[in-house]
Amino acid sequence: MDFILLIISAILVNNIVLAQFLGVCPFLGVSNKVSTAIGMSGAVTFVMVLATMVTYLIYTYILIPLGIGFMQTIAYILVIASLVQMVEIILKKISQPLYQALGIFLPLITTNCAVLGVAILVIKKDYNLVEGIVYGAATAIGFGLALVILAGIREQLELADVPSGMKGAPIALVTAGILALAFMGFAGLV
């Protein structure tokens, strides 16, 4: 597998939010300001890479040998929830500035379907551990890219005269749609 291809594909062509619809809730929820968007992207990148690694190991070395692959969903969600909790505690202990920057986003990540989605996709696509981690990192960067771009647009929209019914979620969704249309231009790159 060509890593550069894998990375470009995960960031631009098959963008996790704009092409695969994973992580739409935080995508709409924290895209009001560029600064929060950057914080959220950082936290997601961190957790996604860790979660992909841990769930991969658990799947290959515990679930499969025991023949209980069907427990995947239940095992993954518990692992991700405890992982998020652990990261929060460790960050608080070792790095106050980092905790202050990412801390408030961490609890939100448990219900971010992008994290669980990537963990499941890595197994579905038959990636090995290294490919899985690269894919996880690239996907997270793609998520961050989409999030920061949308936040930038929404900051400008604050100044625009949006019809009252379209304010909030509707205009964010329509903007995201146009953004997705732009990202479709990358299709065929890989």
Binding site: L18, A19, F21, G165, M166, A169, P170, I171, A172, L173, V174, A176, G177, I178, A180, L181, M184
Partner: peptide, 13 residues
């Protein structure tokens, strides 16, 4: 994908 976002946006409105 784009149509999904746009259609949902209008439905919510």
């Amino acid at each position: 994908a784009p149509g999904a976002f746009i259609a949902l946006g209008y439905m919510i409105a």
